[in-house]
Amino acid sequence: MDKKIQIIAIAIAVVFSIFVLTSPSDPISLPDPYSNTKSDFVSIIAENLDKPRAIAVSEDRIFVTEKDGFIRVIQDGILLESPLASLRSANVFDGGLLGITLHPDFSNNHYIYVFLTYDEDGNLWNKILRITESENKLKDAQTIFDKIPGSSFSNGGFIKFGPDGKLYVGTGTVSDSSHLPQDLNSLSGKILRLNDDGTIPDDNPFSNSPVYSLGFRNPQGMTWDDDGNLYVAEFGPEKNDEINLIQAGKNYGWPEQQCSGDKKFENALLCYDPSIEPGGILFYSGDTLDFESPFIMASMRAANLYQLDFAEGLSSQKSILSGIGRVRDVVQGPDGSIYVITSNTDGKGFPDGTDDKLLRILK
């Protein structure tokens, strides 16, 4: 399909899905937003989270970051009153305590990794902390990577361990007029690849550099398929949100290209015009839930949790869950269930008296 035609088709499909899938009569919506026992399909695990940003799930606990600097713990279905950690974060609109991930050997070493925006002498920066926890308390915190340029609006901040055991980090640009995402000497607008101690892997595509790929505006989620392919979702500037297949050493164009069109850069797999504000994305690898396509995407502006098929584009995009407002992140639990957080207290949503929520999807 011609690329311009494809993008127009995507735009029409997104407008239709936003209108139809969030309509009050949508049968997929949660029937009672105040019930803790919604159905066999969806249940509320925690309520009254304050500007939550990301989820990490272990065998026995769920960890959620809150933008203002708190790591919250849900254990045995209960949100613990005391946070695991209270970190000093910058008070900016779209920065603060953002991404969270657990070390692959978390059950033994108890390492938690977080992405934090902070203010230093009037300048905004981001850093990665490795926290050692013990019985839901902070035992030790170490900065393992620092001086990622910060912003009030586009810090990226999602971090995940890949199937290769390396730590992948999405960083945002400092402003839409900045060309730092095209500068290999800058950490702005990049996907970074690190060892678990923050050092640079020897097999990174650029010598002595943490940069894995470049040319991004504001990465919001990442996932890997069963073949080890990395996918990243990112915000565009009011339109042209993207989902990209990430390859080592490749350039994805921002700010010179949005979505596609320039042979110097990689084309996006999907381009959303108008914006749907994609959040976390997930390649579902379990056998507990039955999906037509394994790719799951949270959406804030479109207020849905979607399943989608990259090969078929937006024509295959279907809502899994709606009626809960803005959806920020989605992860898979060890038992094959899916965990979702809402984002209605982030300044863009319309929170009810129990927002924000952590929900579990399990049949």
Rank of each mutant, 00 (worst) to 15 (best):
L84N: 05
L230N: 01
A268L: 07
R53H: 08
S177D: 10
S337G: 07
L289V: 09
N267L: 03
L79Y: 07
L192A: 01
D68V: 13
Y118G: 00
C259A: 01
L194S: 09
S82C: 10
V20K: 15
Q142R: 15
G157Q: 05
L230I: 11
L230Y: 05
A90K: 04
F93T: 13
I74V: 14
N229F: 14
V331W: 15
I324S: 06
K166H: 06
R88M: 07
V20I: 13
T37L: 12
L21I: 11
V92C: 07
V15L: 13
N126A: 08
N126G: 07
A298S: 13
G162E: 02
F283G: 03
K166V: 00
E312M: 15
Q75S: 12
G69M: 06
G95F: 04
T65N: 11
P181L: 09
N267V: 02
S285R: 15
P33G: 04
L98Q: 05
I12W: 09
P205W: 10
F216D: 03
N109V: 06
Y118S: 02
E234M: 09
Q317S: 12
D105P: 02
E234D: 01
A303T: 07
P274I: 09
G99C: 04
A9L: 14
T345G: 05
T65Y: 15
I55C: 04
P237Q: 14
G95N: 06
L359E: 01
N123D: 05
D121K: 15
F19S: 12
I112V: 14
D355I: 00
V42M: 01
P334S: 04
I324T: 02
V73H: 04
K263I: 13
L98Y: 02
K67E: 00
S29K: 15
G69T: 00
R301A: 03
N244Y: 05
R217Y: 07
S86N: 12
P351A: 14
L308Y: 11
V15R: 14
I320G: 00
I112F: 12
T223G: 07
I18F: 09
G353L: 13
T173C: 07
I159V: 13
S213M: 09
P33M: 06
N126I: 08
Y212E: 04
Y111W: 12
E266Q: 15
L97G: 02
V64S: 05
I338S: 00
N218S: 12
R72Q: 11
V42H: 03
L167C: 04
R88V: 08
K38N: 11
V57Q: 03
Q182A: 01
L180M: 13
I148M: 08
L245F: 10
G249E: 10
R217V: 10
I341Q: 01
K4C: 09
D40M: 02
F206Q: 00
D68W: 15
I276F: 07
V20N: 13
A90V: 11
V232G: 03
I191E: 08
